[in-house]
Design a protein around this nucleic acid. Structure first.
Length: 206
DNA sequence: TCACTGATCGTCT
DNA sequence: GACGATCAGTGAG
């Protein structure tokens, strides 16, 4: 069982030097690595299976308008969390993705639940494994991510961090990004093909 | 499985 | 005052 194997194995924190500081490369590279939240009630771990890149100069990127109070974390050097609130209900977790002062990020769109599933079920209020972390709003809720994690350095000791994973198990698919009204044609979404935890319509999961 | 709709509130204009 | 990197529920094919 994946959960048991992970508990016996020791997770290794990803060093910043291992992470690309090119947004598109990082979005692809993050597939297969782990997000870990050491929550007071237990460790929550998910394996990244879907990302979207929001590179410098992208009109859909929140940093496009320049630095503001909300998007400040996107301008931190790569490897920091950018968490924002949207639609009055949901938080989204991103990883800053370029050098300091250059606003860009990678949105984590879906995870495969790996450890802490019982706590994830309580946080989400659902039972089905594929409904726990499929979609950016859901994964943030399942990992108890909120504004408190905005600006956190994911490469330093702390409750929220990135751990080295096994990498992609299958082929990485590429598609347009989901839910946008600007720059809709850019193929900047990356996902593990055929993985049932990937979000979006079927044609964007195959 | 897909398309459509309402909910909901922080952020920026 | 408008809008949004979403989700759950509903109804149709």
């Amino acid at each position: 069982m994946a959960t048991r194997a992970l508990k016996s194995a020791r997770l290794r924190r990803l060093r910043r030097a291992e992470l690309s500081s090119d947004t598109l490369l990082l979005a692809r590279q993050l597939i297969g690595h782990y997000v870990v939240h050491d929550h007071p009630q237990g460790r929550l771990v998910g394996r990244i299976v879907e990302t979207e890149a929001y590179p410098p100069g992208d009109p859909a990127c929140h940093a496009y308008i320049g630095p503001t109070a909300r998007n400040a974390s996107l301008f931190l050097r790569h490897g920091h969390a950018y968490v924002y609130f949207i639609y009055g209900t949901w938080f989204m977790l991103n990883v800053s993705s370029e050098r300091a002062g250059q606003g860009a990020g990678v949105l984590l769109r879906a995870l495969e639940p790996v450890a802490g599933l019982e706590l994830m079920r309580r946080l989400r209020g659902v039972e089905t494994p594929t409904e726990l972390t499929r979609g950016p709003g859901r994964l943030a809720q399942a990992l108890a991510i909120d504004r408190a994690q905005d600006g956190v350095d994911l490469c330093r000791p702390g409750p929220l961090w990135l751990a080295a994973g096994p990498g992609p198990t299958g082929e990485i698919g590429v598609s347009v990004r989901i839910g946008l009204t600007r720059a809709v044609e850019q193929p900047w979404r990356f996902y593990e093909r055929g993985n049932p935890h990937v979000s979006g319509p079927l044609r964007l999961r195959r």
